[in-house]
Design a protein around this nucleic acid. Structure first.
Length: 324
DNA sequence: TTGTGTTTTATTGCCTCC
DNA sequence: GGAGGCAATAAAACACAA
C-alpha cells in the first residue's frame, strides 16, 4: 500500500514550504479532512465546475513549488473530480475494474491526478459496484422467494381442499359399506355404484397424499435447523420439475469460482473483467455467505450481512433458492 | 439560509498473495 | 516483507426540503 502521507503546503510566512506528515499513527479509520492541497495546472476541464474553481486535490511536490500556488489561502479542502475525469475513469473501469500499475500511472498522467488518487477512485468504485450488485441480487432472490411462497400457499390450500374431499368421501364410503351390510344394495348415497366411489376416493386420496408429502417436504424447509435448510428438488417439486429461483439472464455479484453451479447469473466473465456496472461477475467476495451443496442447493448463512430482515417471516425460517 | 441526508474522496488497519 | 485489495470509517462536497 502506498504510504498515507499528508501533503500540504503553507501560505503566508511559511510560503513555499511543504509538509509531509506521516499518517501511520492514529486510531480508527477515516480522516479525509486532514488533507490539503494547492492548485495545479488545469487538466480535463479542471477549472470548470459549478462551485468555484476545480482543481485536483493532490498536487505533486514539484508543482507546489511554482509561485502561483503560494498566494492562495490555506487550507483547501478536498475536491471532487471533474465530470470529464470521472467519465474517463468510468470508461476505464468498464474496461477493467482492476488497476494494473501501468494503467494507473497512465490514467493519472492523463487526468492530472496522483496515481494514488486513481487507485483510491477504483477502490471506491469497486465498493459502490459491489453494493449495488448485492442490492440487485437481493431483489431478485426476494422476488423469487415471494413467487415460491405464493406457489406454496396455493398448494397448501389445494391440499386442504383435497383433504376435506377425502374425508367426506371416506365417510360416505363407510356409510355405504354399513348399509351394504344390512341390505346388500350396491349404490351409495351419492347415487354412484360403490365401486366408483372407491375409485374416486382412491384417486383423491392418492392426490392428496402426494400433496401432503409435498407440503411436508416444504415444512421441513421452513423449519430447517440452524438457520439453513436443504431443498430437495424432487421431494418438493415432484421430480423432474425444477425451479430457477433466479433469472439466469442476469449477472450476479456471486463469484463464479465458488458458486459455479448457481445460475444466479453468468459467472466469471472474461476472467474478472467487467463490461459494465451491471455486467461483472468478477470480484472476490470472501464474505459472501451463500454457498452450495452437492445437490445444487443454495444456502443462506443468516449470520452474515447478506441476510435481510425481510427474509424471515418467522424466526428460524430460512431463505432458500434453487437453481437448475 | 439552514438543517439534514446522500455521495464522494480519502485514510487506516487487516488480510492475502507472491 | 512488500504490494495491493477490501471493510470500515471520517469528513468534505453536494442535494434538497423546510
Amino acid at each position: 500500500m502506498e504510504s498515507g502521507r499528508l501533503i500540504f503546503s503553507t501560505a503566508g510566512s511559511c510560503a513555499g514550504q511543504m509538509l509531509f506528515l506521516d499518517c501511520g499513527a492514529g486510531g480508527g479509520g477515516g480522516g479525509g479532512g486532514a488533507m490539503f492541497h494547492r492548485g495545479a495546472r488545469p487538466v480535463l476541464g479542471m477549472e470548470e465546475g459549478g462551485r468555484g474553481v476545480k482543481r485536483p486535490f493532490f498536487t505533486a511536490p514539484d508543482e507546489l513549488l511554482e509561485e502561483e500556488y503560494y498566494d492562495e489561502q490555506l487550507p483547501e479542502k478536498k475536491r471532487r473530480l471533474t465530470p470529464e475525469q470521472v467519465h474517463l475513469l468510468e470508461r476505464s473501469f468498464e474496461e477493467e475494474n482492476k488497476l494494473e500499475p501501468e494503467r494507473k500511472t497512465e490514467l493519472a498522467r492523463k487526468l492530472g491526478l496522483q496515481p494514488r488518487q486513481v487507485a483510491v477512485w477504483f477502490q471506491n468504485r469497486r465498493a459502490r459496484w459491489k453494493t449495488k450488485q448485492l442490492e440487485r441480487d437481493f431483489d431478485r432472490l426476494k422476488a423469487s422467494f415471494d413467487d415460491l411462497r405464493a406457489e406454496y400457499d396455493a398448494l397448501l390450500q389445494d391440499n386442504h381442499r383435497l383433504h376435506s374431499q377425502v374425508m367426506s368421501l371416506t365417510e360416505k364410503l363407510q356409510e355405504k359399506e354399513a348399509t351394504e351390510g344390512s341390505d346388500g344394495a350396491a349404490v351409495d348415497a351419492s347415487g354412484l355404484p360403490a365401486a366408483d366411489v372407491k375409485v374416486a376416493v382412491a384417486d383423491a386420496g392418492a392426490e392428496a397424499a402426494f400433496e401432503v408429502q409435498q407440503v411436508k417436504a416444504e415444512d421441513r424447509l421452513s423449519t430447517g435447523s440452524g438457520g439453513s435448510a436443504v431443498v430437495d428438488a424432487d421431494a418438493l417439486l415432484g421430480g423432474g420439475r425444477q425451479l430457477a429461483a433466479v433469472d439466469s439472464s442476469v449477472e450476479s455479484y456471486f463469484p463464479g469460482d465458488e458458486y459455479h453451479d448457481c445460475v444466479v447469473g453468468p459467472m466469471d466473465q472474461a476472467a474478472g473483467g467487467i463490461q459494465s456496472e451491471e455486467d461483472d461477475g468478477a470480484g472476490s467476495d470472501e464474505g459472501c455467505s451463500y454457498y452450495a451443496d452437492d445437490a445444487g442447493v443454495l444456502f443462506a448463512d443468516h449470520g452474515h450481512h447478506h441476510h435481510h430482515a425481510d427474509d424471515d417471516e418467522e424466526d428460524g425460517q430460512i431463505s432458500w433458492w434453487m437453481w437448475n
